[in-house]
Each structure stands twice: as C-alpha cells, then as structure tokens.
Amino acid sequence: MAAAASPIPSAQRALEVRDLHAWYGESHVLHGMAFDVREGEVVTLLGRNGAGKTTTLKSIMGIVRQRQGEILFGGQNLVSLSSNKIARMGIALCPEERAIFASLNVRENLLLPPEVREGGMRLETIFELFPNLAERLASQGTKLSGGEQQMLAIARILRTGARFLLLDEPTEGLAPVIVQQIGRTIRRLKSEGFTIVLVEQNFRFAATVADRHFIVEHGQVVDMIPNDEIGHRQDTLHEYLGV
C-alpha cells in the first residue's frame, strides 16, 4: 500500500484522508480509503467504474453524510461537518453531472455560489479562460453544449475563492479540443497554487496534469504512482484499470 505510507510533512499537507469509510444506506462503499495531498499539488484518483472515486470526493465535500474516519483539512476533521460548512472552509466540488441549474441563465449560474474566501476569480479572468461563456451569458444554463457546461461548472467554483478543488471526471464525453482546453486550465490553476483532486478514467489525460496518481479499487487506495513513473508502469496501470 504505497499510498498510505507516503510520507509528507504535515506543514505541506493540504488534505489527509485516513481510514475513511462511507455508506449509501446499507451499501458499504468506501473501505478504509487513505491518501494525502500536498499544497499546490494535482493528484488523481484512478480506477474502474464503481471503485469509489466519486464517493470519495462526495465524502470529502460532505455530500455523503454516512461516513467514518478522518478527513483532515486545515487542522479540522471534516467528517462531522455539513457540506455548506466544508465549502466555507475553501473546498469546492465540480460534480461529474456538472449540476448546471436549468432555471438559471449562464450569468446566474456563474454568480450563484457565494464567495466563501477572498480572492475568488474575477469574471474577466474567467472569460479569458473560457471565452465561450462570455458570449452565452443570457442563455439558459442547460442549453449550452456539453463542453460549455463543463467550462461553466469549473468557472463557477473558481469564483468562490476556494483553493482546494475536487474535479469529478471533467473530461468525460467531451471533444478532444475541449479536453485540451480543460487540461490547459488545470495546469494554469496548478501554476497559480490551487490544490486539485481529480477523478479520472482517462489516464492519458491524467498524466498530462497530475503529480501523483492514486489507484482506487473496492473503496480503498491500492497503489500510488508518481507521474514521472507512469511511463514505466503502464502494464500495472492497464491491469488496474482493465484497459
């Protein structure tokens, strides 16, 4: 279990997940999930469908309430906190389904989340990152293309001022040109000091943006692969992901 043993000085640690268990009703989904993330790092959770990657993000965010263990962030255990309090600590989730609100237009969707921390990204900067959004401000959110909706979902959490981002499959179902744009955005955010946990099934994309990869199987981390070793460990990775 390379992941659990990863020694990171606590001062550099942005988030530490220890022995995390989570349930949906009777169904036990996370079985002792453990990993940590350094300040300013991009890590991915890689794994097959149903491995527990999305549940891990939702547990960190407090959306899955039935959870036990430790999620340490800013000296606090998040397990006992509700999602609105976790958001106010500076963590933001961009969910897999994007959660664009149909009854709001693009501008309203963008401006919906309150600025939980100072330093939320200004609209001009967001439009520089995602020029398409500037042209569609009055459109109903769900009338945008899949790629534009993904841009809107990412842009929306950047406005909050959160510096710790949870991105759930941001490239799923998108055209290659949009995937490249999302990749550029993640690299830019990393260069600006954002810390990102990325759930991905597309490991080729993950390798272009991440520092480390945690392999998730059956609700726990079973391996950790530094990004600079990913080239040598393709076979292992293929075995884990079943590709």
Binding site: M61, S83, S103, L104, E108, L112, P114, T160
Partner: peptide
C-alpha cells in the same frame, strides 16, 4: 440573488448546499 438561490435549491438542494449556502 436570493431568488436564484431559491430557484437553484428547488432543482438541486444538495449542490446548492455544497456551494456554502445553508
């Protein structure tokens, strides 16, 4: 803005709460 919170929470209260709104 208050109205947009209400409309959004009508659609997806879980996500609105995850944005920091009580």
């Amino acid at each position: 803005k208050l109205g947009s919170y209400l409309r959004a929470a009508t659609e997806n209260p879980v996500m609105v709460q995850a944005f920091g709104i009580d």
